[in-house]
Design a protein around this nucleic acid. Structure first.
Length: 586
RNA sequence: GGAGGUGUAGCGUAGCGGUUUAACGCGCCGGCCUGUCAAGCCGGAGAUCGCGAGUUCAAAUCUCGUCUCCUCCGCCA
């Protein structure tokens, strides 16, 4: 028996034809004298009818059929009798009268039913992922994932990019995320690291004259998981020689246009470009969600001389006071406002000052500390009307941004202020090159240590390191960072200078990155690139809020696989070969 | 590392100190049924209430601990 059609492809065009389909039993409806079954494959469902008039054997066998049996059906396509057309099914105009049934494999009753809109715990879905993936919804996502991947490849191929693989077993480097390590058997006591990204290799490929490279690359970071973060994830990674930032942005926008057109999302001709400083000032985030306004307003100038010490004192100590306006939020209950205050405290804010402009006047626990004039100026600056609620945080700029930026998102989500089916793209540029890490007590690279400073800022690298801007750019959609990249350093002197600024010793520079520094001495072209979080792209394309929905075999929040039970203990012989002893804590 | 939520038949839930013999829906098993597609009707099986301590005459229900899964903070160049 050889399959002639996919289930979902059969329609009126095949009427009277003999077809052979293969797939899974979705459902059996036994009417005693006639049995209906829905057969499912990747393409959809089709109804098969078993009738003793047609074939006694097949009819008898059909009694044994159960959900998820794998079967082959040979039959004649017929139009359904009048009144029996099912408009909900793409194949609903026809049915297949079975003349031969073969059971290819039987199935136990599945622990989770294979159907969309089944509310089932995610741990079970992951344990029986092969059943979960049979659901049409999941099949659609995996098909879309393939389509997008193919689109990416086609687009980059058309733009002269070569797909080149880079090592999975590579070298642990400082900076960045925690590495996944792989012990070496040949060199005991030494370890490979799985790549956090192909960053250094793609730069070496530029030094190798490959001109344009891309890879749909698996990356590994041993950090805690989130709804949009997996320890093992996929990037669209690309790099170009002899280009400037504008070239990378242009190529990227073209790529995004192709990809999003697959899901009918329009990428505008002009994508807004915000500097990092502007994004932080207006939205309190370097990945602002531009689908709604509620921008942060700086009222520091209005309250610097105020008698309200929480405001004026903070400003005197180099801090600031900013606020957001929750339109129509004045009638929030006290406990609802308390909840908002709890939220900003998550981001280290000490408190949340508020002013509610109610019908019967201003209500605010801080009003009594402010003069009438100050209150009036604040109201004016914030453009507050009756019914509005103003919320203020006074603190260091970084805390104000984090607190209000996240409060803004929470209010918008909780109150449905974010329009559906709206896609707001943005480029964020001019990131700081360095930021001070309080724990490490040194500067760390905001992007990565191979990012080039903007040419004009190179001179101040020594005196004012925090003011140096990086020639880096992030691609943001709906408050999600989809991709980021930069123009890279391509000469040894500047690269060493940046390593120096990161407090990396010459010895360490040589040990960890000597091969890259060497490469820069043999003629490396100016180059730059970008990497996209493919899974996050998929989340948006598939309209899901969990990264696990777009990965065939994802891991749980504890970075384990319920399906395979990885990570698992290994045979002591394996450990011995690797020269590894396990210290079991108590 | 921290905060919050969660766990009761195969699945989703209800019950939240004692009239419960732990209920309901889906699924499963058997019977009837020749036009169903959320098939229908009749009957049935299936649960040491995550695990471990404790309080109590009595614990699915209260307390503590622990584990799982989820969300978030830290972390993620």
């Amino acid at each position: 028996m050889k399959r002639t059609h996919y289930c979902g492809q059969i329609g009126s065009a095949q009427i009277d034809q003999k077809v052979t389909i293969m797939g899974w039993v979705q459902k059996r409806r036994d009417h005693g004298g006639v049995i209906f079954t829905d057969i499912r494959d990747r393409s959809g469902l089709v109804q098969v009818v078993f009738n003793p008039n047609l074939d006694d054997d097949a009819f008898a066998k059909a009694n044994q059929l159960r959900s998820e049996f794998v079967i082959a059906i040979e039959g004649i396509v017929e139009a359904r009798p009048d009144g029996n057309i099912n408009p909900d099914l793409s194949t609903g105009e026809i049915e297949i009268k079975c003349v031969d049934l073969r059971i290819l494999d039987v199935a136990k009753t599945p622990p989770i039913q294979v159907e969309d809109d089944l509310d089932v715990g995610e741990d079970l879905r992951l344990k029986y992922r092969y059943l979960d993936l049979r659901r049409p919804k999941m099949q659609k996502i995996m098909g879309l994932r393939h389509q997008i991947m193919k689109t990416v490849r086609d687009y980059l191929d058309n733009n002269n990019f070569w797909e080149i693989e880079t090592p999975i077993l590579t070298k642990s480097t400082p900076e960045g995320a925690r590495d996944y390590l792989v012990p070496s058997r040949i060199k005991q006591g030494r370890f490979f690291a799985l790549p956090q990204s192909p960053q250094i290799f793609k730069q070496l490929l530029m030094a190798s004259g490959m001109d344009r490279y891309y890879q749909i690359a698996r990356c590994f970071r041993d950090e805690d998981l989130r709804a949009n973060r997996q320890p093992e994830f996929t990037q669209i990674d690309l790099e170009m020689s002899f280009i400037t930032r504008e070239d990378v942005l242009e190529i990227t926008e073209g790529l995004m246009r192709k990809v999003f057109s697959l899901v009918d999302i329009e990428v505008p001709e002009e994508i807004p470009v915000l500097t990092y400083d502007e994004a932080m000032a207006r939205f309190g985030s370097d990945k602002p969600d531009l689908r709604f306004a509620m921008e942060l307003i700086d009222i520091s100038g209005l309250v610097a001389a105020s008698d309200f010490k929480i405001f004026s004192g903070t400003i005197a100590n180099g801090g600031q006071v900013k606020g957001i306006k929750f339109k129509g939020g004045a009638d929030l209950s006290r406990s609802q406002v308390d909840e908002l205050e709890e939220h900003v405290k998550l981001f280290k804010a000490k408190g949340l000052a508020w002013m509610a402009f109610k019908e019967d006047g201003l209500k605010s626990p801080v009003a009594k500390f402010l003069s009438d004039q100050e209150l009036e100026l604040i109201k004016e600056k914030m453009k507050a009307d009756t019914g509005d609620l103003l919320l203020f945080v006074a603190d260091k700029p970084a805390i104000v941004a984090a607190a209000l930026g996240n409060l803004r998102l929470k209010i918008a989500k909780d109150n449905n202020l974010i329009p559906d089916d709206t896609y707001k793209f943005a480029w964020i540029i001019d990131f700081p090159l360095l930021e001070f890490d309080e724990n490490a007590e040194r500067f760390v690279a905001k992007h990565h240590p191979f990012t080039s400073p903007i040419a004009a800022d190179i001179d101040i690298l020594d005196e004012k390191p925090t003011e140096v801007r990086a020639d880096a750019y992030d691609f943001v959609l709906n408050g999600e960072e989809l991709g980021g990249g930069s123009i890279r350093i391509n000469n040894r002197q500047l690269q060493e200078k940046v390593f120096d600024a990161l407090n990396m010793s010459k010895v360490e520079q040589e040990e960890k990155f000597g091969f890259l520094l060497d490469a820069f001495e043999y003629g490396a072209p100016p180059h730059g690139g970008i990497a996209f979080g493919f899974d996050r792209l998929m989340m948006i394309a598939a309209g899901t809020d969990s990264i696990r929905d777009v990965i065939a075999f994802p891991k749980t929040q504890r970075a384990t696989s319920p399906l395979t039970d990885a990570p698992s203990e290994v045979d002591p012989v394996q450990l011995k070969e690797l020269g590894i002893n396990i210290n079991k804590e108590d």
